[in-house]
Write a protein that binds this DNA or RNA. Structure first.
Lengths: 146, 146
DNA sequence: ATTTTTGCAAACCTTTTGCATGGAA
DNA sequence: TTCCATGCAAAAGGTTTGCAAAAAT
């Protein structure tokens, strides 16, 4: 969970101005505990009459991705979505039912990268790992229903 | 490397009709050894005057993804691209310089999935791993130039 | 003869851009 | 007061859809 303040602070630290639209988006993003699309963010801002324009949503997301506070996801459907995250490691498990996401830590991925480099001769520069599945509470809900 | 014939055969096996546009696309896809976008495929078909329409390109790619002969990639830039692949394992290393792709095998990913499931409690249903880096020949080319 | 597939063009959806205005430093 | 950021609306991409014609079975 990333706090609204952390996002605002990150804008500041990175040398961006603290504007009302950015504060508003920080709040909206922090309020989400799962992934969200740009459109959803825009819709939320419209719903609460925050008056943040479409372009600003995209521009802010770009900045946040740059800063490392938001990560872009590509859902299995091909849709683009985003999740807020701590600016360091980089893997999430996303619940395919409720959309909530959880940090997956390293879990041995570094070793996989080394192994792939060894086998293929490629010099690995970047990677993306996206995991989808049922979170514990959706599993429970599902078995309750059966 | 996937052959044109293998693709045509796969259409047949899966119960789709063997049409001229599909044969043509099979040839074009097999001719690519790196990743390609839908637009590039369309451009290639136009260039060779194969008269395959845009819609058919997208429709055929959808089918091939379904069958498992083509995989959708999301490049670090956010662009959608595709690669032909054997219909089983599922990881590629893509050269960030020339676009060529190579099979990365399993390399311990199954173990990572187990570890993530154990740590997070999620029941992992699917995952996507995309690796980007310099292929051996681009590495060589680069060091030659310095 | 029947059913699938196709090409075309238009519709759609998402993201980006240009530019004058407004706000932060 | 200077420069960055915003909103708007239009443009640009990329993908999908409706439909009548053409091709495969």
């Amino acid at each position: 969970m990333v706090s609204s303040d952390a996002i605002v602070l990150a804008f500041d630290t990175a040398g961006y101005r603290l504007t009302e639209p950015r504060r508003a988006l920080a709040r909206l993003i922090a309020a989400h505990d799962g992934h969200f699309t740009a459109e959803e963010l825009l819709a939320a801002s419209t719903r609460e009459r925050l008056g943040v324009g479409r372009a600003t949503v995209f521009r802010s997301l770009d900045i946040l991705i740059d800063i490392g506070l938001v990560e872009r996801l590509d859902l299995p459907t091909g849709e683009h979505a985003f999740v807020a995250c701590e600016p360091s490691h980089h893997h999430h498990v996303v619940c395919s039912n409720c959309g909530r996401s959880t940090d997956a830590g390293d879990s041995g991925i570094a070793a996989v990268l080394d192994e792939v480099a060894r086998r293929t001769g490629y010099r690995i520069e970047s990677h993306r790992l996206e995991l989808f599945g049922l979170c514990p509470s959706c599993q429970a809900a599902r078995s309750r229903r059966t």
